[in-house]
Write a protein that binds this DNA or RNA. Structure first.
Lengths: 128, 128
DNA sequence: CTGAATCCGACGTGATACTG
DNA sequence: CAGTATCACGTCGGATTCAG
């Protein structure tokens, strides 16, 4: 989502924006779900499991999730360096309602696809 | 989210992307919630209720929601023209799990804000 | 291994003006 | 009233390069 940053006058009406703006990017959910599945994972493991994420975006995504308190980061002062990532309690609690959405998407994404295929643009109707 | 479009190799693992990519923009959720509250609403009413949305983005958002089958669009051939928008059953069913997220956000957005304030960038620690 | 820095193109969004 | 068209700008994300 580009739920871009904003001086949103609806923050009160839509407190969800405060949070979902940050999770609505290309990778956050995928990282969270991967951590949920895999438990504590190293940077390189996350990278390989998500596969098509770039190093840059994985690092950036993890920073934000860490900053929001959804993911914990543990650095080991070894050579080579090792960094473990895991869900925090807050992060795990977030995924619960998120699974509700996931279930909905699984159940209805075919309906959505069908609607997209059946859709005819308003203009196109009278265009000919 | 810029859950931008993508040739996503994780569509199977993350079917939620198919759907949430589209809902993850700046206005979709707000429009859906507004329709949930207000029932059937005209374009101008939606515009005034959301207030800071531009005509362009409202129209674009409604097109996408309509295309995905979440919102219905009814045109009356009157002068001046009148167009009603309302949630479809699919749209209403989507909002149910979405409220789970909303509740989480309401319950925890303070935790998130607290985490953000408490956060110190990794570099900043050893930077001085 | 785990990043950060930079360059760059693509897309989302807003402002404005125009139309049926 | 209910849109569409055009332009300009900002951010996101990918590729690449450099570093501890």
């Amino acid at each position: 989502m580009s739920l871009h940053k904003s001086k949103d006058p609806y923050a009160d009406r839509c407190p969800i924006r405060d949070v979902l703006e940050r999770l609505g990017d290309r990778w956050s959910m995928l990282v969270l779900f991967t951590l949920e599945e895999g438990g504590t994972l190293r940077f390189s493991v996350l990278k390989s499991q998500i596969a098509d994420i770039s190093q840059r975006m994985l690092a950036q995504t993890l920073r934000r999730l860490e900053q929001d308190g959804l993911v914990s980061r543990t650095v080991y002062a070894t050579v080579p360096p090792r960094v473990d990532y895991a869900l925090t309690e807050l992060g795990a609690s977030f995924l619960k309602p998120m699974h509700g959405l996931l279930d909905w998407a699984k159940a209805h994404h075919q309906d959505v696809h069908a609607a997209r295929r059946a859709y005819t643009a308003p203009e196109a109707i009278e265009a000919r």
